[in-house]
Computed example of a mutant assay.
Amino acid sequence: MRAPYRNAAAAVLASLSILAAQLPARSEIAVEAPERTTATAEEIPIRQKIGQMILVGFVGMTPSRAGVRTVLEQLEAGEIGGVLYLGRNLKNRKTVQRMNAAFRAAAPTALPPLIAIDQEGGRVQRLRSRDGFPETPSAKRLARKGSSIDAERIYQVLAENLADWGFTLNLGPVVDVDANPRNPIIGRLGRSYSSDPERVAAYGAAFVAAHRAHGVLTALKHFPGHGSSLRDSHKGAVDITRTWSDGELIPFRQLIAEGMADLVMTAHVINRTIGGADRSVPMSLSKDALTGVLRGDLGFTGVIISDDIQMDAIRWNFTLKEAVLKAVTAGTDILLFANDKRPDPAIPAKVADILEAAAATDPDLARKIDAAYDRIVTLKGRLRGAGDGAADASMAQ
C-alpha cells in the first residue's frame, strides 16, 4: 500500500466515529420479496438450467476481444449464468462499464448475469487506485482501527463504486476466523477480521449491509472455515481436521440466522470432523458438509457457490467429471471456474455434457439441478436495476 493511501485511510477511519451516527439503522432498509418472472425449472431445457449453475472467468479487457465475445455468446445462449473478473480484465472504469453493460444486454432480461469480482479490501482487491477505483483497507485493519459501524461506512463507498462500475456480486466477506495468524492464505494476508467469531460476524454483517444498500450481492466465505489451515488450497490438498474447531461455524451460523447471507462459498479443505461417510473429500464436494451441516444444521436455504473448481486442491485430486458430479451431488448450486492459469472457453459445454448425461440416468441429480436452478432464479430476482449505479433497497431480505 502506498504511503498517500495509508494516510488517507487513516484519516477516513479517524473521522468515522463522527459520521457513524448518520448511518441508517439496518432495520430501516426496506424488505421486498422477489418476484418470480421466469418459467419453472420443469419447463426449462436441462442445459439452460445447468447454464445458470456455471460462472466463468474470461480473457480480455475490452468488448471487442475474442474472449469477451465468447462469454457474451455464452450468456446469450444460456450456457453460463455469469462471469468473474480477474486483474487481467481491468483497464479503466469506462471500459469495464461498457463490458458489464454488454454482459447485461446479452443475458435474458429475467435472469441478469452475476458479474462477480473479489473486492475484499487489503491484499485481495482486483480493482485498484491505478484503475480509478478507491481502495479499501484490509479486514484486519478495519477491525483493529474502528467499529463495525465505521467499517460499514467504508464498505458503503466500496459497494457504491462496484454498483457504478456494473458489478452485481462481490465475493466477500471473508468470515473465516483468524484461528491461525500464520495461515498463508487468510491470516498472513489480513483477510480475517478477528480471532473472535462474534466479532467476525459483526464486521461481516457490516460488509453485507453496505452492499445490499447498493444492489450488490455478497458471498460469505469460506465454509466451514479456512482460517485455521496450515496450507493454501490454491496449491494443493489441505487437511484442517486437527486445527479446525466448531467455533469457526459461528459467523456462518449467526449471519444465516440474521438473514445476512446472500450466497455462501465453500472451501476446498478436508475436514474429517465433518466428513462423515466420505472423509477424504474437500468440504466443497461433501454432502455431509453442504447438505448436512450448511443446509441442515445451519438452515441455509440460499445459493451455495463453490470456490474455484480449477484450484490445485481439486485439479490434482479429481477429474473434471468427478469434481462436477461430487459438487452438485453434495448440494452446490453454482460452479465457479476462474479460468486463471489455463483458460478454457469450452468449460461450460464440458460441464453441461457431464451433468446432462448423468442426470438422464440419475433422477436425484436431476432434482438437484432443478432445485439449484430455482434458487438461482430467486437470487437473480433481487438484481432488478442492479448495475445502474442506483441504490436498491430491495436487496434486504
Rank of each mutant, 00 (worst) to 15 (best):
A213Q: 15
D178Q: 03
Y193C: 14
L217K: 01
V177D: 09
D232N: 04
K221C: 05
P184L: 08
S229M: 01
S195H: 15
S229I: 04
V208Q: 02
E248I: 00
K235F: 13
V216Y: 15
S228A: 07
A210D: 12
P184A: 09
H222K: 01
V200E: 05
A179T: 15
S233N: 07
S245L: 06
D239C: 05
H234Q: 02
S228H: 05
D232Q: 03
V177L: 11
K221G: 01
V238K: 09
A219N: 00
Y203E: 05
R212E: 00
T218A: 07
V216A: 11
T241V: 04
H214V: 04
G236N: 10
R191P: 14
A205G: 14
R191Q: 10
K235N: 13
S192P: 14
A206R: 00
A213C: 15
D196N: 12
A213Y: 13
L217P: 07
D178L: 05
G225L: 00
V238H: 11
G187S: 05
H222S: 13
I186K: 11
I185S: 11
H234P: 07
G187V: 01
K221L: 10
G215H: 08
K235C: 12
A202M: 02
S229E: 00
T243V: 15
D239W: 14
R182Y: 12
D246Q: 12
S233M: 00
I186R: 03
W244Y: 13
R191C: 03
A206M: 03
A202E: 00
R212F: 04
S245G: 15
A179R: 11
H234T: 04
H222N: 05
N180A: 12
S233Q: 14
P224Y: 00
H214G: 08
A213I: 10
F223R: 14
I186F: 06
A209F: 08
D239N: 01
Y193Q: 10
R182L: 14
S195Y: 08
G204S: 08
D246M: 10
S245E: 03
D232S: 01
H226Q: 15
K221R: 09
G227E: 08
I240F: 12
G204K: 06
A206V: 07
G215F: 01
R242W: 11
T243G: 02
V208L: 04
R199H: 06
G215P: 03
D178R: 11
R231N: 07
G247P: 07
S228Q: 04
H211A: 04
A219K: 01
A201W: 00
W244F: 00
A206E: 09
H226R: 10
A201K: 10
A237T: 10
E198H: 14
V208W: 06
L230Q: 03
R231F: 01
G227L: 08
G190H: 03
D239I: 08
H214I: 06
A237C: 09
